[in-house]
Design a protein around this nucleic acid. Structure first.
Length: 846
RNA sequence: GCCGGUGUGGCGGAAUUGGCAGACGCACCGCACUCAAAAUGCGGCGGGCAACCGUGUCGGUUCGAGUCCGACCACCGGUACCA
């Protein structure tokens, strides 16, 4: 009988739909719980990308095995459906975003079901559903009530194409993360979330989490904690200028001061500043620079020296000039620095250009040539009054103490993390439930009025003036003040896409609750997520945001755990093969080109000339223009879902990027065909393993079990392939085949269910227990050991398993080839590694 | 610049953490089956006639190094005037 994957997969998907074998029950105390989570997809119009099945299949395999291990498994799915791509698609095609979203979710659902994932389909979550975003809005109100949501006017990142503000995390190399358009600074009044209040806890609590190390490092770097001191300098106007420095030890070397162009004192000092025109011109120039220009221009320092105001260095009373320069950021520290050109690269560069004095205060470098920035014990303080002779490490606490005693400074911690810009001037997002009243100011919408529904609008296109499309909906905008009952206006900005995804994993625990975001019972039972797998690109976005929200919900007593996710892993991207790269051509094509151009190098050079630099990269992102995009629908049609699942897991190291290969898919299909042919054969007998395969089966059980736990799916599959090869070579018993199906089931569930049923093993594979590993069954009576002489393998011997070291050495020396090599030599030393090898060191006999 | 990571056959990738490098798969070659092809099954497959040589390069530790230590090279990712 042929392996008819299309019919088999349809049959089992229909049965799963009806019988719901993957549904889970909240509150089951008879079994331990396991909550496996994947990042819910954004339902784009393009449908499922071939990259999606990689993390999905991985967690599907993990959770299927957990079920077989006896866990009550929650493995849910949902849709992160608000956001710009849908809105842009809707605008372009003149369809309402809600309709687009509905269609896209239907298509995604079809594709996800087609791949046979064991989701609990009764728990689907959709962030655009009012019964869901009611609670997103509710959380916002709680943040507002605790002072963690506030409206502030400040320079924000503005995407010139999306016509919308962006969070810091959404700006990548000066351009919009989503559309690639330049980002500029724009002064706007925005809702902000005070994530900075959680900066320290977001760092500290990482220690107890089982996250892969690079995620922890990346989050810590992004939060960017630094310790230093704030120091007050007196200005000649009498004002106190506070600077932040990580090097208070170098205070004696501060020869000038720099303010950010946006610094508030500039306005205050207008009457005394003699070069105000020059200053204004610089301010304007700095403001109009896009982030991209700022980074590109960062090599050459610019600035203006203030004419009319200077500052006094508090340690030595010296008067020093004040500059403004855009290398000092308004949004970090105090927006002002003391410049120590001898010991800071940027200050050194600036001083050289503007002719400022350079005073060495730490010995160890040549400050005429470059700044000496080392902060270790190699430098001794000089030219620094009472600090002279100390090391830098001694000087830092000494000067800090001195500053504190004088009341002009104190130690200070700073973070690079900024508060989260939380409003977007777009339509397709959660309305922010706030009302502006001339009399009462901003008022939160009473909770009983939630959800605040997103109104139907005629036009949801973004406006050039930076106002949300909702602002034109006067009927909706005009409302009454919840406080005084007078006329008031609603907030017309919406929430960013990251809002709905910041808590969705909680909703899965109790998705239909209309009283709370989830019941206490459900939260207690399922929290925390035991294993969360997702992309590295979310490390400083979704992952950080949702940790912040979760900590807040913990603080107000809504959730029972400090952290949302106990374990976080990450998958690599699926890339495509570059059809224009020499190494991806078939051997014949390569040969032809080499003949034509004389050498491989010349052939490669020709391809580069033809297609540009990228022809040198064998592996590239999938793109329509290269024609290397793989559609999961096509693969399922041609080979079946089980083959796609197996291949996407076999493709390589799960954590690393891997390139799609059509040929390699065929190899996985071939493997499933081999399993099918083997297992569909009628076999008599019981459940016991055959003596020929017993050891191999137990070794495979160990390998596959461990590899699934550690996400080494590729080697787990390799072990199963080896086992099948053994079965072909030695024949397989009914029990051998049964073990194979149990282990293969998480990877290829449709086929294994079908074969399980055909063989009449009873029940369904997914309901069986995972096979047990018995180490005693893998030991054999003899062992094969390599014999090395001076570290080189020279022969192999077979000895009884219980041989002593002396017996093993004797056996090694008796081996004909070894005996020949050892002739005329003395055995100096021997090392025996039981079961592996013997290393002999021989010396010529004198 | 700073912080991570990676470098192994024609290709994707293994290697129990210091113990027989190249598991498993792809591609390729041979054989069987077939009138033939495909499919399937079986076998071969790093280089070299060989001694030997081979895990980015150079050096070190060790009986033994892909794995450890030192110096470098290349590529990928994150971050970037954060004082």
């Amino acid at each position: 009988m042929k392996y008819d994957f299309a019919a088999i997969e349809k049959k089992w998907q229909d049965r799963w739909e009806k019988e719901k074998p993957y549904a889970c029950r909240t509150g089951d105390t008879s079994r331990p719980k396991f909550y496996g989570l994947i990042e819910f997809p954004y339902p784009s119009a393009a449908g499922l990308h071939v990259g999606h099945p990689r993390p999905f299949t991985a967690m599907d395999i993990v959770t299927r095995k957990k079920r077989m291990d006896g866990y009550n498994v929650l493995f849910p799915i949902g849709f992160d459906a608000f956001g710009l791509p849908t809105e842009n698609y809707a605008i372009k095609n003149h369809i309402h975003p809600a309709i687009v979203t509905k269609q896209n979710i239907e298509n995604f659902t079809r594709q996800l079901k087609m791949l046979g994932f064991g989701f609990d389909w009764d728990r689907v979550v959709d962030t655009t559903d009012p019964s869901y975003y009611k609670w997103t809005q509710w959380i916002f109100l709680q943040l507002y009530k605790k002072g963690l949501a506030y409206k502030a006017t400040m320079p924000v990142n503005w995407c010139t194409s999306c016509k919308c503000v962006l969070a810091n995390e959404e700006v990548v190399e000066g351009v919009c993360e989503r559309c690639g358009a330049p980002v500029i600074r724009k002064e706007k009044s925005q809702w902000m979330l005070k994530i900075t209040a959680y900066a320290q806890r977001l760092i500290d609590d990482l220690d107890d989490l089982d996250y892969i190390e690079r995620v922890k490092i990346q989050q810590k770097n992004w939060i960017g904690r630094s310790t230093g001191a704030e120091v007050t300098f007196k200005a000649t106007t009498g004002d106190d200028i506070v600077v932040y420095t990580t090097r208070p030890d170098t205070l004696f070397g501060a020869t000038y001061m720099v303010l950010s162009p946006e610094h508030a004192f500039l306005k205050k000092w207008e009457p005394v500043l003699k070069n105000m025109d020059e200053i204004r011109a610089y301010q304007r120039a700095a403001a109009s620079k896009s982030d991209l220009e700022r980074t590109e221009l960062n090599k050459e320092k610019t600035g203006v020296c203030l004419d009319g105001v200077s500052a006094i260095n508090p340690v030595n009373g010296r008067e020093i000039p004040i500059f403004i320069s855009d290398y000092v950021l308004a949004t970090y520290g105090t927006g002002a620095i003391m410049a120590v050109p001898a010991h800071d690269d940027r200050d050194w560069e600036f001083a050289r250009k503007f002719g400022c004095e350079v005073i060495e205060v730490v010995k160890g470098g040549d400050v005429e040539k470059e700044a000496f920035t080392l902060k270790d014990d190699t430098g001794i303080m000089v030219n620094s009054g009472f600090l002279d002779g100390m090391t830098v490490r001694q000087a830092i606490p000494a000067i800090t103490k001195w500053l504190e005693e004088k009341g002009i400074g104190h130690s200070q911690v700073n973070y690079k993390l900024r508060d989260w810009v939380f409003s977007r001037q777009r339509y397709w997002g959660e309305p922010i439930p706030m009302v502006w009243c001339e009399k009462c100011g901003w008022q939160p919408l009473p909770e009983d009025q939630l959800p605040l529904l997103l109104p139907e609008v005629e036009s949801y296109e973004p406006t050039d003036d930076g106002e949300s499309p909702l602002s034109k909906m006067t009927d909706w905008v005009n409302t009454t003040c919840p406080c005084c009952g007078g006329p008031a206006r609603r907030e017309t900005d919406t929430m960013p896409q990251w809002a709905g995804s910041s808590w969705y994993f909680l909703r899965y625990m109790d998705p239909h609750n209309d009283q709370e975001l989830a019941s206490k019972e459900a939260l207690e039972y399922w929290s925390p997520v035991d294993w969360y797998n997702g992309g590295m690109e979310h490390t400083t976005l979704h992952l950080l945001y949702s940790r912040f929200w979760h900590k807040f919900l913990y603080d107000i007593g809504v959730v029972p755990t400090k952290e949302p996710y106990a374990k976080r892993t990450s998958h690599g991207m699926i890339l495509g093969q570059n059809p224009r790269c020499f190494s991806n051509l078939s051997q014949e094509e390569q040969k032809k080109l080499v003949e034509e151009f004389g050498s491989e190098e010349a052939a490669r050079a020709h391809l580069v000339e033809l297609h540009g630099e990228m022809a040198e990269h064998p592996i590239v992102k999938m793109s329509k223009s290269l024609g290397n995009v793989v559609n999961p629908d096509d693969i399922v049609k041609a080979y079946g879902a089980d083959t796609l699942r197996l291949y996407i897991m076999f493709i390589g190291d799960f954590e690393k990027a891997a390139a799609w290969s059509d040929n390699a898919v065929k190899g996985c299909k071939r493997f499933l065909d081999r399993v099918w042919n083997l297992a569909s054969e009628k076999r008599e007998g019981g459940d016991e393993y055959s003596s020929a395969n017993e050891a191999a089966v137990h070794k495979a059980i160990k390998k596959v079990s461990e590899d699934i736990e550690s996400m080494k799916f590729n080697t787990a599959i390799a072990a199963l392939m080896s086992l099948v090869n053994d079965f072909y070579a030695k024949g397989a018993s009914r029990g051998d085949v049964k073990a194979l199906l149990l282990m293969l089931c998480p990877f290829a569930p449709h086929m294994c269910e079908e074969l399980w049923e055909m063989n009449g093993y009873g029940g369904q594979v997914c309901q069986q227990s995972w096979p047990k590993y018995d180490a005693s069954k893998t030991v054999s009576a003899t062992m094969r050991m390599a014999v090395q002489i001076s570290g080189k393998v020279r022969a192999n011997i077979i000895v009884p398993a219980e041989s002593t070291n002396d017996e093993i050495v004797a056996a090694a020396l008796a081996e004909p080839k070894i005996a020949r090599l050892a002739e005329g030599k003395t055995l100096v030393k021997s090392i025996v590694v039981p079961g592996k090898l013997i290393s002999l060191i021989l010396k010529p006999r004198v």
